[in-house]
């Protein structure tokens, strides 16, 4: 029995030939995502806007309009009602002005109305967040996200070269922007758990980017004479099998979680699944292509003066002759 090989050995796909198309597509998507975020905004969870939310399981299926009419009689402003299954909904309302007493009253108001109208209703989850705390949660989440991205970029600059740092930062920006666009588009609830999902996506995407970058760095040291286009293409092709296997195993795991997992993590898993796709794409096209524009050259790692000594090294030049990828060099 032979092991499964999803990607044949020695692939030779000219990825960077399509870099302008891919980059335009990426930029278009980023702009569209930012526009979506600006126009539609997020369906922010109460973590971020404050308010209260109760999750109710009814003994029998209920009509949303019917329920809304009953909640409206409380006069607490507009309630957002979301249905998970025929007899499971969440009801979200603003926190009333007038401090804690009013808030308590409002919360028990919803409970008693629901309990009276639908006997046997069970409350799965009750949440309330005040405006002050929600502002703090929002700013601390944003800070954590922003600083983490910055810290990572600095590390990559330190370990690789400045072009790589900027490339990684741009790739992260690309992934975060698209994921946010996805949430603006679908209006899935955006809460603190989703921030954790975005962080996970950043983690995966970065992993991908670093693997490709590491190979570029290695090849830059090995093949001093190769032009940069071919070198980037070669590096992407060499890591392609790994990219496919890793992404596929994650997609398998996440699909299972999406179908069988608890519905509290549905939005979370959906975001991650999307993020794997975006992240894989960005590490191949965005992060590698941007190196070209930032004028990454063969001298980026080994100064030009080293050339004579370098050429004597066996690995530097010798493998080129035998390398099947030789054909990739125009």
């Amino acid at each position: 029995m032979r092991p499964l090989k999803l990607v044949p050995d020695n692939t030779n796909i000219p990825f960077l030939k399509y870099r302008n198309v891919a980059m335009s597509f990426s930029i278009l998507l980023i702009v569209a995502s930012l526009a979506l975020v600006a126009i539609r905004g997020f369906n922010l969870g109460i973590d971020f806007v404050g308010g209260q939310m109760v999750r109710v399981t009814f003994a029998q299926p209920v009509g949303i309009e019917d329920l809304r009419a009953k909640i409206d009689t409380l006069g607490q402003g507009e309630a957002t009602i979301q249905q998970f299954s025929p007899n499971e909904v969440s009801i979200r309302t603003q926190l009333p002005d007038g401090g804690e007493a009013a808030a308590n009253e409002a919360a028990s108001g919803i409970r008693s109305v629901v309990q009276k109208a639908y006997p046997g209703a069970k409350f799965g989850e009750v949440e309330s967040v005040s405006g002050q705390v929600s502002k703090e949660l929002f700013s601390s989440g944003a800070w954590a996200l922003g600083l983490a991205m910055l810290g990572i970029a600095l590390y990559i600059w330190f370990r690789f070269e400045w072009q790589f740092g900027i490339g990684a930062l741009f790739a992260l920006f690309h992934d975060v922007a698209l994921t946010l666009g996805f949430f603006a588009l679908t209006q899935l609830e955006f809460d603190l758990n989703v921030v954790a999902a975005v962080l996970t996506i950043i983690g995966y995407s970065l992993n991908d980017t670093i693997v490709v970058y590491d190979r570029i760095r290695e090849n830059l040291r090995k093949y001093r004479k190769m032009d940069i286009y071919s070198l980037l293409d070669l590096s992407i092709n060499e890591t392609l099998s790994r990219t496919v296997v890793t992404s596929l195993s994650l997609i398998i795991a996440l699909t299972v979680l999406l179908v069988l997992g608890p519905d509290v993590i549905f939005g979370f898993t959906a975001a991650m699944l999307l993020g794997i796709g975006i992240g894989t794409f960005s590490s191949v096209y965005v992060s590698a292509a941007i190196l070209l524009w930032l004028k990454l050259g063969p001298d980026s790692f080994v100064p030009a003066g080293d050339d004579k000594g370098g050429n004597k090294g066996g690995e530097r030049t010798a493998p080129r002759a035998a390398d099947p990828n030789q054909g990739a060099v125009p």
């Binding site: 069970k122 989850e125 309330s128 967040v129 005040s130």
Partner: peptide, 8 residues
């Protein structure tokens, strides 16, 4: 009380 969350 500034934040409250109850999970059944």
């Amino acid at each position: 009380v500034v934040q409250e969350s109850t999970v059944g």
